[in-house]
């Protein structure tokens, strides 16, 4: 199932309230039979300040690009490329990014065709891809993955996480990764190939999550304070993305302390050794996890 690009795309991204969004998520839309009623919806969008960073066109261009680049691949492959670039294009504070109404507007008005392209392979898109929690919604999950797993201005760990659907689906929803050294340590283990299969990834996430009940990662592996100036400057600055093959640069925040990341990497690897992973040898292709 595919959609065509909407005939009308608003100039700026705004907020689309949940009730209105929900009404749009009809069986017809989710199965690709109907298109959103863009013009009628646009009237219901609550506008954000008309700042450059809320312009819809750069995001739209990015999505057009990724659908073109991945036209011959599985759409899941697009996440790795898209997540850092979406984050670098759509420059938001965390408070702004926490608003589901922004992501609903993006999904229903700016790029419903992308949502269907990326998440509609089974014939029907799960409604949460249009409107849902940050770890499920089509755009929020990518933006937040980049935000949570970037190491200062370095998007490479985030891209690495997005390469593994299990990691993206499981780790992003856990509160433990809110502590930056935890996120970085998990990314290191993934890079080193300590975990590769979906089961291993899930087992590792469970280990990290369960052990947090007894170990205060904040204390044994402290992070440094957030650099508010760096992030604020970065948000104000207009995004200009490099070419398709070069990762953009994130906010000039300090990276997570190496010592803390090392401590946790070692700890997690050690705890993971004992973790039961069924069929450790079997390599299974990470698949889309259907929700519920």
């Amino acid at each position: 199932m595919t959609f065509e690009k909407p005939s009308y795309i608003p100039e700026f991204i705004g907020l689309l309230d949940a009730e209105t969004a929900t009404e749009q998520l009809t069986e017809g839309l989710l199965t690709g039979v109907e298109k959103p009623r863009s013009l009628a919806l646009d009237e219901l969008v609550q506008p954000l300040p008309h700042e450059e960073r809320f312009r819809a066109r750069p995001v739209r261009a990015l999505l057009d690009r990724v659908m073109h680049l991945c036209r011959n691949e599985k759409p899941t492959a697009a996440d790795e490329w898209l997540a850092p670039r979406l984050h670098a294009t759509l420059r938001l504070t965390r408070a702004e990014a926490a608003d589901p109404e922004l992501w609903s507007c993006l999904a229903l008005l700016v790029a419903p065709d992308y949502v269907v392209w990326r998440h509609g392979r089974s014939g029907k898109v799960d409604a949460v891809r249009f409107q849902g929690p940050h770890y499920k919604q089509a755009f929020a999950r990518l933006w937040w993955a980049a935000e949570m797993f970037r190491d200062g201005d370095d998007y490479r760990p985030a891209a690495r996480i997005c390469r593994n659907q299990d990691m993206l689906n499981t780790a992003l929803r856990l509160d433990v990764v809110d502590h930056r050294p935890v996120a970085q340590a998990v990314a290191v283990l993934l890079e080193r190939g300590v975990v590769t299969t979906g089961r291993e990834v899930n087992a590792l996430c469970t280990v990290v999550n369960a052990a947090a009940m007894t170990l205060a990662y904040d204390v044994i592996a402290p992070d440094i304070e957030r650099d508010q100036v760096a992030v604020a400057d970065w948000i104000r600055y207009e995004a200009v993305l490099p070419g398709d093959l070069v990762l953009p640069t994130g906010p000039a925040e300090s990276r997570a302390p190496q010592e803390s990341v090392d401590t946790l990497t070692e700890l997690f690897a050690d705890l993971f050794k004992d973790a039961p992973v069924r069929d450790r040898e079997q390599v299974d292709e990470p698949e889309e996890v259907t929700s519920r």
Binding site: T206, V207, A210, A211, M213, L215, L271, D274, P276
Partner: peptide, 12 residues
């Protein structure tokens, strides 16, 4: 213990 996702000494 074989069903422990993490060893007991690191679990609540």
């Amino acid at each position: 213990p074989t069903t422990h996702p993490v060893r007991a000494s690191s679990s609540g």
